[in-house]
C-alpha cells in the first residue's frame, strides 16, 4: 500500500458517501444517471468475485464489501426508493454500446484466459467508460447540482491517484499491470473536461453548466 493508492481509495469512498448522502438528504436522485450506477454495480460484482477465494487484507476485504453493498443500495435508491425523482428522459445513453465492445475486448485482451481473470479484465475495461452515461446526462440537462459535481470530482480523482500509485509501484515494487494502467488513463482522460469546469467554476461557487 502507498499514499497514492490510500488517498485514491479514500477519494473513491468519499465519492460514494457523497452520492448516498445527496440521495438520502434530498430524498431525490435528480441529475444522477441510473445507467452509470448499474454499470458500477456490474464493475464491482465482476471484479470482486475473488472476495471469498483470495484474502489480501482486512482493509481489502472490507472495502470490497462496502463498494459492492453501496453500489446495490445506490441502484435500489434510483430505481425503487426514490424512483419518482429519477430523470429517465435524460438518462438515455445506450449502455449496450459499452458493454458489448468491452466484453469482446476482455475476451481477447487479458492476462490469463480464465473465467475469473476475464471477468476482472471486463470489470477494469467497463469501469473506464462507466461514467459516460452520467457525463452524457449532465451535458443533456446542461447543468449539474454542485453536490453531484463534488461526487464526480472525487470519483474522477480516485483513478487519477491510482495512476500515481502505479508509477510508484513500478519504481519501488517493479509492479506493472498494463491493462489496469491503460484503462485507468482512458478513465481519467474522460474526466478532463469535467475537471476543468469543476476547477474553473464550481470552486468559484458557480454551478456547472455544460453547453447543452
Amino acid at each position: 500500500m502507498n499514499i497514492f493508492r490510500l488517498v485514491g481509495d479514500m477519494s473513491h469512498l468519499l465519492a460514494i458517501i457523497i452520492l448516498l448522502m445527496k440521495m438520502w438528504k434530498s430524498r431525490s436522485v435528480a441529475g444522477i444517471s441510473g445507467k452509470s450506477q448499474i454499470l458500477f454495480a456490474i464493475v464491482f460484482t465482476t471484479r470482486y468475485l475473488d472476495l471469498f477465494t483470495s484474502f489480501v487484507s482486512i482493509y481489502n476485504t472490507s472495502m470490497k464489501v462496502f463498494f459492492i453493498g453501496t453500489s446495490y443500495v445506490t441502484v435500489y435508491f434510483i430505481y425503487q426508493h426514490f424512483k419518482p425523482t429519477y430523470d429517465s428522459n435524460h438518462d438515455t445513453f445506450r449502455v449496450e454500446f459499452l458493454i458489448v465492445p468491452v466484453g469482446g475486448l476482455a475476451f481477447l485482451v487479458n492476462h490469463e484466459f480464465s473465467l475469473l481473470e476475464i471477468l476482472w479484465t471486463f470489470s477494469i475495461y467497463l469501469e473506464s467508460v462507466a461514467i459516460l452515461p452520467q457525463l452524457f446526462m449532465v451535458s443533456k440537462t446542461g447543468e449539474a447540482e454542485s453536490i453531484t459535481s463534488h461526487y464526480l470530482f472525487a470519483l474522477g480523482s480516485y483513478r487519477a491517484l491510482y495512476l500515481l500509485n502505479w508509477i510508484y509501484r513500478y519504481y519501488f515494487e517493479g509492479f506493472f499491470d498494463l491493462i489496469a494502467v491503460v484503462a485507468g488513463c482512458v478513465q481519467t482522460i474522460l474526466y478532463c473536461d469535467f475537471f476543468y469546469l469543476y476547477i474553473t467554476k464550481v470552486l468559484k461557487g458557480k454551478k456547472i453548466s455544460l453547453p447543452a
Binding site: 472495502m63 491510482y162 506493472f176
Partner: peptide
Amino acid sequence: VMLGGKHDEL
C-alpha cells in the same frame, strides 16, 4: 499482473 496469483488492488 497478479502478485502471487491474485490482484491486490481494489
